[in-house]
Computed example of a mutant assay.
Amino acid sequence: MNLDFTSIPQNGWSVDPAALKRAWRLKMAVTHPDRMVGRSDKEQQIGAQQSALINRAYETLLNPLPRAHYLLERHNAPEVSESDSLEDPELLMEVMELRERLEEAESEEEAAEVRADNAKLLEATVETLAQAFGQSPPDLETARQAAVQLRYWTNIEKAAREWSPGKRVELQH
């Protein structure tokens, strides 16, 4: 079965979420485990595997960080690992300041402000990825650096979403 989602450009970054969802639904209509009832165990197993692959592809392409990792891998760029860190001291300071603000937040409003400030940084990084992957050939070094940054902004976003008074802020990089 071809798992290629036709709404995804071969070398680009842009994804039309509505087109992606339509492609996902069409493929899931064929492979969803509920559609396999009454079929042989082997057919059910294959359907379940295909369904899992389609779901993974959908989530990867829908979310910027896994999409960046996927595209870098597709272009044989060095893998972005958990041990990769920000090399730009200004960016590192920005990460640390956002984390500190989140740790010191005493209200939902203060946590929401951190989340809003972080959203701007996240959006700018996604735009950097779009530009890097949009070049011909793609600027893989810029894309790789942006993917590392995106991991930090994504982790801050998650911590800000999960923030609650008195709860320790845990960022995973």
Rank of each mutant, 00 (worst) to 15 (best):
P33D: 05
N63R: 14
S81I: 05
A48K: 11
P78A: 13
A68Q: 07
V37P: 02
N76Q: 15
E87Q: 10
M36P: 09
H69V: 00
A77E: 14
L71Y: 07
R39S: 12
A57Q: 12
S81R: 12
A68F: 04
E43M: 13
E82V: 08
S51I: 03
E73C: 09
M36F: 04
S81N: 06
E59N: 11
L53Y: 07
D34I: 12
H32S: 11
D41P: 13
M36G: 11
P78R: 13
L86H: 04
S81C: 04
E79S: 10
H69P: 02
L72G: 01
R67M: 00
V80F: 03
P33K: 05
N76A: 15
E82A: 15
E43V: 12
R74F: 06
S51N: 06
L65D: 01
S83Y: 01
P78V: 09
S83L: 04
Q44W: 03
A57H: 08
P33A: 06
I46D: 14
P89D: 08
R39D: 09
Y58T: 04
S85K: 14
H32K: 12
E79Y: 02
P89R: 04
D34K: 14
Q45G: 05
E73V: 07
E43A: 15
E79N: 10
R39T: 14
P64T: 07
E87A: 04
E73L: 12
P78G: 05
L86E: 01
Q50A: 07
R35W: 05
R74T: 14
L53T: 02
L72F: 03
Q49G: 13
S85N: 12
N55W: 06
N63L: 13
P89A: 09
Q44C: 07
E59P: 00
K42R: 15
P33W: 07
R35Q: 14
G38R: 08
Q44V: 02
E43P: 11
N63W: 08
D88V: 04
L53I: 01
K42P: 01
S85A: 14
H75M: 03
L61V: 08
A77D: 10
E79I: 06
R56C: 00
R39C: 10
P33S: 05
A77K: 06
S40K: 05
